[in-house]
Structure formats: structure tokens, C-alpha cells
Simulated scan of single mutants.
Amino acid sequence: MPFISNYETFSDQNPHPDSTIQKQKWFSDEFLCKFKGFWIWSPYLEPTKKVVEDFKPLPSDVILASFPKTGTTWLKALLYSIIFRSSKEKPLLFNHPHELIPSLETKLYLEESNGKNLEFTDHKVRILGTHIPYQIIGDILNSSDCKIVYVTRNPKDSLASLWHFVQKAKKFDEDPWTVETAVDQFCNGVVPFGPYYDHVLPYREESWKRPWKIFFVTFEELKEDGKKHVKRLAEFLGCPFEGENKEEQVEEIVKNCSFEILSNHEINKSSEMPECFPLPYNSFFRNGQVGDYNNYLKPEMIHQIDAITRQKFHASGFVYGI
């Protein structure tokens, strides 16, 4: 049976036009809160509002947007390596990709920092991450000439990756988020920054309208031909590979940002907790494969998700995800 939401309400601690927020249990005692049509994990609700109210992108900014668990960590490594490839240092050896490219709502605009950490880099280009949907942040991103890179992933693999990710939480054993519940919630859109389909489509549509502004790529495309899309990214970002050794430059970036290499760096194997995130560094590296969902989702679950994919994606002209 589909997951039926038993909504609760609560009042914001701070005055807000929407003083009553829909609240839905996720797992254990964790809740999702509905904000402008999307479900936000409760600790990130206020930071998300602050981003909407206060963030002003610079023309030189590069914004990596994504739905959770769709290849964000990989793209952060690739973007950093492409843009700052002239640096003789090798920051990916000693820094987790999420430290090099911080997220607006899950780090920079958390209550204690209030966006003051935006001056986090000595580089002329700031690379910032976000999971905020285009429907919420689009006008803000369009207020400057900043570039947007969006990555998505097969919905079934995205869900499987999210389900595994949540299992790293200490609370998971107390009240597990079962795969059955995860599938039903995903199909109903009640997952962090969901609905997934409503998150993906506007970024894709905007990338067709304004390819100079938004670069849209899938996890599967990157896996199939990483060199091709790294070159495309560099062109899009205004820093194309040049010189006699340009092919070697591309190959080195693709190799150094591969799952096999990144997952073996000590920082990425660490069980230490990031300053602003409740899961360890090593939780971001698990498998990195296409089609891994087949190992965890039953045939009826796959059919359930595929039916919605046809309805949402295929009917919109985006033949993807099945």
C-alpha cells in the first residue's frame, strides 16, 4: 500500500508568514517539515529559510545543485579539480569534498554561523553546494550571472543510496527506516528535499532554455564517459583544457576523482564527524555503482518507482530512470 502521511503541525519558534508547518515523521524521532511544497529535514528548515532571505550569489559563483545522494560528493571533487587545477597543492588528499565545497543550507547558513562563513576561500571563485529546489532558489540564482551545475541520478539508485546513508545514523537501530517505508515515502515525495521528480525537472527544463547558465548532467553519463563530460564542464565554466597535454590533464582529474581513488583517502575513510553534519566522513563513500538498487529493492518496489518515473519524467519528455 502507498505510504499515507499522518501530518502533524507545529508552530515556528520565530514568526513567519506560514506560522503552521506540516510535519511528517521520517525515522526514529527525526521529522521532515514542508516548506514551499518540499520536505526539509527539520534541522535544515531555518537555514533554508535564511538562504532564501539572505543569500546573494556573486557573478563569479559556481553553484552545485542536486537532490541528496545523486552524485553530489563526486561532482564536488570534479568541480574543485577542474576550476583549481593550476594549484600545485592536492587538497583532495587531505580534505573531504564537502569541506572544500560547503553547502549553503547544511553548513554556511546554520543557525550558529548565519551565513558569515561565506568568506571561506581565498580563491576568486566560490563553489557552493545546495539541495534547495529550483522552485525555491531559482529567482535568487537568476539574480546574478553565477553558473549552476546540476547532477541527478536514477531514482532507484538515489533511493537505495539514501536508505543506506540513513543507516549510518545512531538512531537507525532504535527505530529503523525500513526499505518498504523508504520506497513508499520516496514515491509520495516525503524524503529530504523531496519530491525527487519535482526537484529534478525544473533544473533540467531551465538547462534546455539557458544552457549557458545551467549545466545538467546525470550520474550515469559521468560513469559512462567521464572524460567527455569533464571537458564539457570545463568549457561551461569558462576554463577549457588547453595546451599539448590537455588530454593528460583531463585523464588525471577523472582518475583522481574516481570512486576508487577518493574512497581510499584517509579523510574519506575517517569515522570522525564533520562539524555541521550528524554522519561520519566515511558515510559519503559506499558503492558508487550504477544499478546497485537491484541488490535491495524487490521487483514490486522497482515497478512502483518505475510507474511514477514514467508518469513524471517520460510524460515530460525526459526519458530517463528506467
Results as ranks from 00 to 15, higher is better:
residue 140 I to Y: 11
residue 191 V to P: 01
residue 218 T to M: 02
residue 33 C to L: 11
residue 136 I to Y: 07
residue 82 I to E: 05
residue 321 G to C: 06
residue 74 W to I: 00
residue 88 K to S: 15
residue 1 M to Q: 13
residue 18 D to R: 05
residue 322 I to K: 13
residue 189 G to S: 03
residue 195 P to T: 06
residue 215 F to M: 07
residue 55 F to A: 05
residue 272 E to P: 06
residue 44 Y to A: 01
residue 281 Y to F: 12
residue 20 T to D: 14
residue 208 W to R: 14
residue 168 K to E: 07
residue 90 K to V: 06
residue 172 F to H: 11
residue 7 Y to N: 12
residue 235 E to S: 11
residue 243 G to V: 01
residue 252 E to L: 11
residue 306 D to P: 00
residue 100 L to D: 03
residue 226 G to W: 01
residue 256 N to Q: 09
residue 266 E to Q: 09
residue 285 F to N: 08
residue 290 V to M: 06
residue 264 N to F: 04
residue 75 L to T: 00
residue 132 I to D: 02
residue 252 E to G: 08
residue 124 K to S: 15
residue 151 V to T: 08
residue 73 T to E: 08
residue 106 T to V: 14
residue 17 P to W: 03
residue 121 T to M: 00
residue 192 P to I: 00
residue 309 T to K: 03
residue 209 K to I: 06
residue 27 F to G: 01
residue 264 N to H: 12
residue 87 S to H: 04
residue 225 D to A: 02
residue 224 E to S: 14
residue 37 G to C: 06
residue 277 F to C: 08
residue 203 Y to K: 07
residue 173 D to R: 10
residue 321 G to I: 00
residue 89 E to M: 04
residue 201 L to G: 06
residue 189 G to T: 04
residue 117 N to G: 13
residue 74 W to R: 00
residue 230 V to H: 00
residue 196 Y to I: 04
residue 7 Y to F: 15
residue 306 D to G: 07
residue 202 P to Q: 03
residue 119 E to L: 11
residue 44 Y to H: 02
residue 134 Y to A: 04
residue 95 N to K: 07
residue 69 K to T: 01
residue 196 Y to K: 05
residue 30 E to C: 10
residue 18 D to K: 05
residue 27 F to R: 02
residue 57 P to T: 07
residue 139 D to K: 13
residue 135 Q to V: 09
residue 146 C to K: 09
residue 291 G to A: 06
residue 122 D to Y: 10
residue 230 V to P: 02
residue 141 L to M: 04
residue 224 E to N: 15
residue 25 K to W: 01
residue 8 E to V: 11
residue 146 C to E: 04
residue 101 I to V: 11
residue 311 Q to L: 08
residue 81 S to K: 03
residue 192 P to K: 01
residue 319 V to W: 12
